Simulated scan of single mutants.
Amino acid sequence: MGVRDAAKICGDRIGLLDAVHRLKNRQTLTVVMFHRVLPAARLAGADPAYTVSTELFGQCLAFFRRHYVVVDVDAVMAAQGGGGVLPGRSLLITFDDGWDDNLEYAAPILAAEAMSAVTFASSDAIFDERPYWWQEVLLAAMRDQRASVTQLWNAVEGDGAPPPADCAALDLLVRYGAVAPGCRHQALLPWIDQESPRHMLTPGRLRDLVAAGMQVGSHGAAHLPLTMMAEPLEDLERSWRALEGSLAGAFRPAMSFPHGRYSPALISAAFSAGFKVLFTSDGVLNLLNAGRPAAVLGRVEIAAQHIADNHGRLQRHRLATWLFLRQRRHLGRLRSLSNLQESDVHE
């Protein structure tokens, strides 16, 4: 098959998918989730599951402009509160964690497209003076196979018990999160890259992000699974105080659940803490009720492995399939969907 024939088939496929999208998703809000945006020269070492190139990010924005009405989190909160309605096929762009590259690379690309996004920031990481984020150091050591689970488990002082047989990344995060920052630093010292630029935004850079046209909400304080914390409400309230105090009124009362873990009790706790709109990691499209979204919303992770070719270039038909054919849900009417699998969210 020649290049022209392949391009024609791809174009025909996009046209059919778009027709389905315009009919099927006319009363939906799609929320997309990014984490990091880096130029190709800096991709090495970054988690490929949570990082897209600047080129791919720009191509995604062009796709969003063509197939959606891109809105900001203020419009979503206003519509949810009865102060307006969202247009059909709305799309909101979100970022998790608060990486410094959100300001350095993502914000200028968004500004060039006259678009905005909301960053859900983990406040402890933002206010930590150390240039590295301890969670990235820990997970990178596992990801790059520079340390085994057992090595990392035993690097921090504990009760001497071995790691669980099915020990996962979240178990390690909780174990390290329970120790004092100084002890954590000493435990991770063998795997810290002293030459690495700062991972996360600082409070000043967070304010610069707002000045660049982006909004900021909360991703919790400790960035640990709230379902595995003894005092999750305290974590949410601490994050609110830190971010609102730093942003001088620019903080948005919206949050995303760290690691996508939540429960009905945590939803109630988040509302009691003052948050108005809650974002999950459930990969569904959000049904609108006469233009109004629910207060609990699903999001679709955008990862290069699902939408790009082997050279990192966007495959438009793959992104269309990834987004357009998902189940439509109203999470405000459902119990927790935290264990929803990708195979369950495509119709």
Rank of each mutant, 00 (worst) to 15 (best):
V3H: 15
V3K: 15
D5M: 15
A6P: 13
A6H: 14
C10L: 14
R13E: 13
A19I: 12
H21G: 01
H21N: 08
T28M: 03
T30A: 00
V32F: 07
D47V: 03
D47S: 02
Y50I: 10
L56H: 07
A62V: 10
F64N: 03
F64V: 02
D74R: 11
V76K: 06
G82N: 02
G83A: 01
G88S: 04
I93T: 00
F95R: 08
E104T: 11
A106M: 10
A111I: 02
A114Q: 13
R130A: 01
Q135W: 09
A140S: 15
A147R: 04
A147D: 00
V149D: 14
T150R: 12
W153M: 03
G160R: 03
C167W: 07
C167D: 00
A168N: 10
A168F: 08
A169P: 11
L170N: 08
L172S: 04
P181C: 02
R184E: 08
L189H: 11
P190F: 03
E195R: 15
E195W: 14
P203E: 05
R205M: 07
V210Q: 08
V210G: 03
Q215V: 06
G220K: 02
W240H: 08
M255T: 07
P258C: 06
Y262R: 08
A270K: 07
S272K: 12
G274M: 01
L278H: 01
T280E: 09
L288A: 00
G291Y: 07
A294R: 13
L297K: 07
A304S: 08
I307D: 05
H311D: 13
L314D: 01
L325I: 09
Q327M: 11
L334G: 12
S338V: 05
E342A: 14
E342C: 12
E342R: 15
